[in-house]
């Protein structure tokens, strides 16, 4: 088969997707992108302090996976967590107000960018220590299995975390006990400033599951439909009691590791090239165009999202700082 024919079939297959679903995914990705751009801007204005790790470029991963989840599934991730929270339908106002350290933030201003949670939405953080969320995610899966419900745990971590010992301690136990956990490696090529090639032995991070008998796949994390399809396979595998599953998402972050990272370890060209050729939002946008969605509709979506973000930013700046009494609350429950 010629390459062009193969590509045409691929596009046709993609065009079989439900248009509403595609539009929803597009909206969510755009919401994350615009949210992160605004967060970057507020950081520059001194409204957000500390560390702030943006998700720009990686949006397809979390939105694609989220589209395959059901009510009651749990999600846990690292400190690059704003996208995951928005994907879980957490309120952008509450997330942004946490970034600004205000009383209406999800953690009442006591957690900040890296530490937010919503039990209601199944989002279990937001963890600041590289890879600490991995055994926690396996533990959430343990609880699903223990309670005999059909839910799964989606446990995200980056390529940097993939070298931490506790990841493999978790793989071992998850596989031994057949825990319903999808380990999602968001491989954005750099653990802070060190490229995967310089930090990680072996061909692929996902191959490391093989030693534990864990099935894995490598997915183009810039292609949301590929992400969604893989997530459906992986989640179904876990939900039916077969044990854990690894998805290695090849993705890319456009911004530095955090706001204070000048990103000198890679060239501007490298970033621009990926932005031009594989941007996950542009990808789905062009698909929507091909499926006949008018430019105006897409523009309206963008306008709507911008206003949601503007409102969130305003809310986050207007919300008062937490009362001084909050210093001594929530240390223990009783």
């Amino acid at each position: 088969m010629k390459k062009s024919t193969a590509k045409k079939i691929l596009i046709e297959t993609k065009m079989n997707y439900d248009l509403n679903l595609l539009q929803d995914m597009y909206k969510k990705m755009l919401l994350i992108r615009r949210f992160e751009e605004k967060a970057g801007q507020l950081y520059g204005m001194g409204q957000i302090g500390g560390f702030c790790h943006l998700y720009i470029g990686q949006e397809a991963v979390v939105v694609g996976i989220q589209s395959a989840q059901i009510e009651g599934d749990s999600i846990v991730t690292s400190y690059r967590d704003h996208g995951h929270m928005l994907a879980c339908d957490m309120d952008p106002k509450g997330v942004m107000a946490e970034l600004t350290g205000r009383k209406d933030g999800y953690s009442k201003g006591k957690g900040g960018s890296m530490h937010m949670f919503s039990r209601e939405k199944g989002f279990f953080g937001g963890h600041g220590i590289v890879a600490a969320q991995v055994p926690i995610g396996a533990g959430l899966a343990f609880a699903h299995k223990y309670n005999g419900n059909k839910n799964v745990s989606i446990t995200y971590f980056g390529d940097g975390a993939a070298n931490q010992g506790q990841v493999y301690e978790s793989y071992n136990i998850a596989s031994l006990w057949k825990l319903p956990v999808v380990f999602v490696i968001e491989n954005n090529k750099y653990g802070m400033g060190t490229s995967v090639n310089r930090s990680s032995a072996g061909e692929n991070l996902s191959d490391r599951g093989e030693a534990y008998g864990i099935k894995s796949e490598i997915i183009d994390g810039m292609d949301i439909l590929a992400v969604r399809d893989a997530a459906i396979r992986a989640i179904d595998y876990c939900r039916t009691g077969k044990g854990p599953y690894i998805l290695e998402m090849k993705t890319y972050r456009y911004r530095g590791h955090s706001m204070s990272d000048p990103a000198k370890y890679r060239t501007r060209d490298e970033v621009d090239k990926i932005r031009k050729t594989s941007d996950p939002i542009e990808n789905i946008k062009s698909l929507l165009n091909k499926m006949g969605v008018e430019e105006k509709t897409l523009k309206d979506i963008d306008i709507d999202i911008k206003s949601v973000i503007a409102e969130a930013a305003k809310f986050a700046q207007d919300s008062p700082e937490p009362s001084e009494d909050e210093l001594f609350t929530d240390i223990t429950i009783n």
Binding site: I136, A138, F142, A143, N147, Q166, S170, I173
Partner: peptide, 26 residues
């Protein structure tokens, strides 16, 4: 064996799994 679990010798891992289970209301 659904209430009493032998773990491998991986304190960091099983402590974290326990914490995750506790977040999951166990």
């Amino acid at each position: 064996d659904k209430r009493v679990y032998d773990t491998p010798i991986t304190e960091h891992g099983f402590a974290g799994i326990g914490i995750g289970a506790a977040f999951g209301n166990l």
